[in-house]
Amino acid sequence: MLAQRLTSPFDPAERLQVMILNLKPNFASGLLVLLLLLLTYGTNAQCDEKRVRKLTTTHLGEYSYETASFRPLSGFGNSRSIDAVFIAYGDEKYRVVNLSHGHSGEMVFQILDAKRNVIFSNEKSQSGDKHDFTAPTSGDYIIRFKYLTETKDGCVAFAIGYK
């Protein structure tokens, strides 16, 4: 087996490549790759349709599906605050749930009404990341995700149900 040298000491990908090449052909390299597989799978599993569908079904409960959305948090760049707008119709009953997962930092989840008043914040809530309400008026409501610490990992996701 060829012993490899680093061409760039600062490239972690290259470091790992060289490490694998320098290993003897035993199960260690297999295990290393298994670790890679698990890490890759873990990253992929965080923000996909299957996971979000399962979470949506569980958390909406008796509410019918209105909509749901999900994106990797890193896709929003350095934004510490993400506002997703949804339409609520007057006198209709809604459930909004935060389905974000897999991030390491602290996050505040809020819902703002059509007049930009905060009608829900998970900081003060006993019900966790879920809010049931009847919309007083029709308009654009906002789901706000505020990240208090710098984090780019994980999935930002929500679901809305109606009754």
Partner: peptide
């Protein structure tokens, strides 16, 4: 941004939900 690239359409889709 950093490691994930998302398109303008993907961002818009997340930020503006259509009703059911």
């Amino acid at each position: 941004v950093s490691e994930t690239v998302i398109t303008k359409a993907e961002t818009q889709d997340f930020l503006h939900s259509l009703p059911n």
